[in-house]
Design a protein around this nucleic acid. Structure first.
Length: 183
DNA sequence: CGGTTTTGACCGGCGC
DNA sequence: GCGCCGGTCAAAACCG
């Protein structure tokens, strides 16, 4: 009763490097013709092609020109005193070529943190979905190598409708991706 | 005014 | 045990 199906789930032993274990790549073309950097009403992402490719390992810095969708399984042992541990929380990284950090995916986010990333001059921002009862998180990072590449990592899944008020076509693309990959 | 951003403090895990 | 590191909290500032 969680909701529908997850987006990407690829099981793989995550024991080696904690940097990244990309499993699925998809090529995405994002043309960003926006220059309004003041609001969340930026329009981007026009075309999208997907092709499930198995990524080698190593870091995501390899692919610089394209966007990639990376599914990672992570163990999240909460620091609280609850009894429900051992649940792995899947994380989905989405790498996009964009000029602005704020990619509007149709959801409402509240920023709750920002930390500096080592080996990176750009900070990483932590967001949380503001829908009641929805604790989906995401973090946005920018590569210092390619300042045009923004990595967005989603954690958890939304089980509520989106705010279609300001959802641009990015959301449509995402929903289509769910359909395609909803085994 | 209410929600969001900002930003340093705080906290748990891990390596030494 | 200590210090680093990644992630989160929370209070004040900020903004519509």
């Amino acid at each position: 009763m969680e909701n529908y199906s997850p987006i990407f789930q690829y099981s793989s032993p995550t024991t080696t490097t904690s940097s990244a274990s990309p499993m699925l790549l998809m090529t995405t073309m994002t043309s960003s013709g926006s220059e309004l950097q003041s609001h969340d009403t930026n329009k981007e992402v026009l075309g999208l092609m997907m092709s499930a490719v198995e990524a080698p390992s190593s870091d995501i810095t390899n692919l610089s020109q394209t966007s990639s969708f990376v599914g990672t399984e992570n163990e999240v042992k909460s620091g609280k005193k609850k009894a429900e541990k051992k649940i792995r929380k899947p994380r989905y990284a989405f790498q996009t070529r964009s000029q602005v950090d704020i990619l509007d995916d149709g959801y409402r986010w509240r920023k709750y943190g920002q930390k500096a990333v080592k080996n990176n001059k750009f900070p990483r921002s932590y967001y949380r979905c503001t829908y009641q009862g929805c604790n989906v998180k995401k973090q946005v990072q920018r590569l210092s190598k390619d300042e045009g590449v923004v990595v967005t990592t989603y954690e958890g899944m939304h089980s509520h409708p989106i705010d279609q008020k300001s959802s641009d076509n990015f959301e449509q693309i995402l929903s289509q991706m769910q359909i395609y990959t909803a085994f």
